[in-house]
Simulated scan of single mutants.
Amino acid sequence: MRYKDYYQVLGVERGASVDEIKRAYRKLARKYHPDVSKESGAEERFKELGEAYEVLKDPEKRAAYDRLGSRYQAGQEFQPPPDWGSGFEFSGARPAGGRRMDAEEAAAFSDFFESLFGGAARGNGFEAGAGRQSRAAPAADHHARILIDIEDAYTGAERNITLQSPTQDASGRVVMRERSLRVQIPRGVREGQRLRLAGQGAPGADGRSGDLYLEIQFKPHAWYRMVDKDLYLTLPVAPWEAALGAQLTAPTPAGKVEVSIPAGSQTGRKLRLRGRGLPAAEPGDLYIELKVVLPPAEDPKAAELYRKMAAELRFNPRLHLGV
């Protein structure tokens, strides 16, 4: 997927005000409107202008887009990082107050737009077409996605988080406001679960404050990956441990455990530890996937051992292929 420079599309500077963006859009939209323009590719250009304006006219979408834009040039290969929307506070009620785009609406936007603000970016709060609360609403809720460690879900934790929210200054330019909160992470929290912080949203028309909803996402972990309530760990084993069987120690977020490796195990074999997954009324399981790791033959003694094995074992792992 190619990165789109929406500022370049509209021909404005990155620090342009909302009024400057609006004027640039109106001027170019008149020029490339399919009903009046005779230029080749006018319809596609008109759609591109509309997409750029859809993002840059909205303080929240623009601020989120700007967090990525400084690292890319137009036309570069691009893939949104999994944590790009974390710590970003936005208004509106999603999913209760939002909606999905229908096929006709989706056709007006590129894959790049969809990857950032559409269904492919669930959890960042910028689904296209998401509604805002009306001015008559009794309170204005806010939403944010936060990243936590997998270990926090096993034990529970209290964490300081920093949230950023966009607003417009007097000149119509987007500026970021920052605030810090102390948050209690409950034991057994799951990815996608939302934590409600009462009264931490924005003031509504009746003077009361709305709530802040924090959507949980786990940070990428060097050892573990979580699927729903289940945890997966790849455990390296030596060839003799896999061939002969062994009692090994394996790490888990809740502490070390002893694991029995059956004799004759191969790479890819999965061992299931019931109840060692995410804590819950019905806890998940921990799946240990074995990976046989060969010792390096970096010195003469190790190389000689491998030659001796080859001579004595006469093992052909390709025999089933007929070669």
Rank of each mutant, 00 (worst) to 15 (best):
residue 199 G to L: 10
residue 322 G to Q: 13
residue 180 S to G: 12
residue 202 A to I: 01
residue 306 Y to H: 10
residue 168 Q to D: 07
residue 9 V to C: 02
residue 260 S to L: 11
residue 318 R to L: 13
residue 92 G to F: 10
residue 271 L to I: 15
residue 162 T to A: 13
residue 97 G to P: 02
residue 231 L to K: 00
residue 5 D to F: 01
residue 202 A to T: 04
residue 273 L to W: 02
residue 61 K to D: 04
residue 229 K to R: 14
residue 56 L to A: 04
residue 272 R to Q: 03
residue 323 V to F: 12
residue 59 P to K: 02
residue 201 G to Q: 01
residue 92 G to S: 10
residue 151 E to L: 05
residue 269 R to D: 14
residue 291 K to I: 04
residue 296 P to Q: 04
residue 254 A to Q: 14
residue 11 G to S: 13
residue 18 V to I: 14
residue 143 H to G: 05
residue 123 G to I: 14
residue 80 P to M: 12
residue 14 R to Q: 14
residue 50 G to R: 09
residue 32 Y to I: 01
residue 85 G to W: 02
residue 315 F to C: 04
residue 127 E to T: 12
residue 72 Y to I: 06
residue 240 W to S: 12
residue 140 A to G: 03
residue 204 G to S: 07
residue 311 A to P: 04
residue 272 R to V: 09
residue 8 Q to I: 02
residue 17 S to Q: 13
residue 158 E to T: 15
residue 156 G to K: 00
residue 269 R to M: 13
residue 162 T to I: 14
residue 246 A to V: 05
residue 211 D to P: 05
residue 133 Q to P: 05
residue 50 G to Q: 09
residue 243 A to D: 09
residue 98 G to L: 03
residue 76 Q to N: 13
residue 190 R to V: 09
residue 154 Y to V: 03
residue 317 P to H: 09
residue 215 E to Y: 02
residue 119 G to C: 01
residue 109 F to Q: 07
residue 318 R to K: 05
residue 89 E to R: 15
residue 44 E to M: 10
residue 49 L to D: 07
residue 4 K to W: 04
residue 60 E to D: 10
residue 71 R to T: 04
residue 151 E to R: 11
residue 61 K to L: 15
residue 300 P to C: 03
residue 131 G to P: 05
residue 80 P to N: 13
residue 10 L to N: 01
residue 217 Q to K: 15
residue 24 A to E: 00
residue 46 F to L: 00
residue 268 G to F: 08
residue 121 A to H: 08
residue 118 G to K: 00
residue 138 P to F: 00
residue 144 A to H: 11
residue 30 R to L: 13
residue 94 R to Q: 07
residue 255 G to T: 14
residue 6 Y to T: 11
residue 271 L to C: 08
residue 298 E to T: 15
residue 237 V to E: 08
residue 240 W to K: 06
residue 275 G to K: 12
residue 92 G to A: 10
residue 103 A to M: 06
residue 223 W to T: 09
residue 4 K to Y: 11
residue 153 A to L: 12
residue 257 V to Q: 15
residue 164 Q to E: 15
residue 212 L to C: 06
residue 77 E to I: 12
residue 38 K to Y: 10
residue 27 K to E: 14
residue 170 A to G: 12
residue 310 A to M: 08
residue 47 K to G: 06
residue 219 K to G: 04
residue 27 K to F: 08
residue 48 E to V: 05
residue 288 I to S: 01
residue 151 E to K: 10
residue 214 L to P: 13
residue 263 A to K: 15
residue 225 R to M: 09
residue 84 W to G: 03
residue 314 R to Y: 02
residue 78 F to P: 00
residue 256 K to T: 09
residue 228 D to M: 03
residue 45 R to H: 08
residue 237 V to D: 08
residue 228 D to V: 08
residue 137 A to V: 02
residue 257 V to F: 09
residue 284 G to Q: 04
residue 66 D to P: 08
residue 8 Q to K: 13
residue 238 A to V: 02
residue 198 A to P: 04
residue 65 Y to K: 07
residue 249 T to D: 04
residue 113 F to D: 09
residue 297 A to G: 02
residue 68 L to Q: 11
residue 79 Q to W: 11
residue 307 R to N: 01
residue 293 V to W: 02
residue 212 L to H: 03
residue 33 H to S: 13
residue 119 G to Y: 07
residue 33 H to T: 09
